[in-house]
Amino acid sequence: MDETGKELVLALYDYQEKSPREVTMKKGDILTLLNSTNKDWWKVEVNDRQGFVPAAYVKKL
């Protein structure tokens, strides 16, 4: 969790967005987890953008 109590995830792999609903991340990025109710796609925030990334590409910290 960060200082505001939000849950964080670590990008395990690079991911290039394939639609406007997704976000690009690089391996090693720390992202804010917004929603993990879907087992396949998690909603995150990175670089002031919100979108989805494959759940298998990130790990909760």
Rank of each mutant, 00 (worst) to 15 (best):
E22V: 05
D14E: 05
D14Q: 04
K60Q: 08
A11F: 01
V53G: 00
G28K: 02
L10G: 03
L10R: 08
G51R: 02
N35K: 06
I30Q: 04
K26S: 09
Y15Q: 01
Y57G: 06
W41P: 00
Q50P: 05
K59F: 10
E7S: 11
K60F: 08
S36F: 07
P20H: 11
L34D: 01
D29W: 12
R21N: 15
V9F: 06
S19M: 07
Q50N: 08
P20K: 09
L33N: 00
Y57Q: 05
E3L: 14
D14W: 03
K39N: 11
W42C: 04
Q50M: 09
V44F: 00
L61W: 08
L10K: 08
K39R: 11
D29N: 06
E3D: 13
P20D: 13
N47M: 11
V23F: 13
K43A: 08
E22P: 05
R21C: 14
N38F: 08
D29Y: 05
V58K: 00
G28M: 03
A55S: 14
R21E: 12
R21P: 05
N38C: 08
Y13I: 09
M1N: 12
V44C: 05
L12W: 04
V44P: 00
F52E: 04
P54E: 01
D48V: 06
N38W: 07
P20V: 09
V44L: 03
L8F: 15
W42P: 01
D2E: 14
E45L: 10
W42D: 00
K43H: 11
Q16S: 12
K43N: 07
L12Q: 04
T32H: 09
D2K: 05
F52W: 15
M25L: 08
N47F: 11
G51C: 03
A56V: 09
Q50R: 13
A56D: 09
V9A: 11
W41F: 06
D48M: 10
N35W: 07
L34R: 03
P54N: 03
L12A: 03
P20E: 12
K18P: 04
V53C: 03
V44Y: 00
Y57N: 05
D14T: 06
K27V: 07
A55C: 07
D14M: 03
V9H: 03
R49G: 04
Q50E: 10
L34T: 04
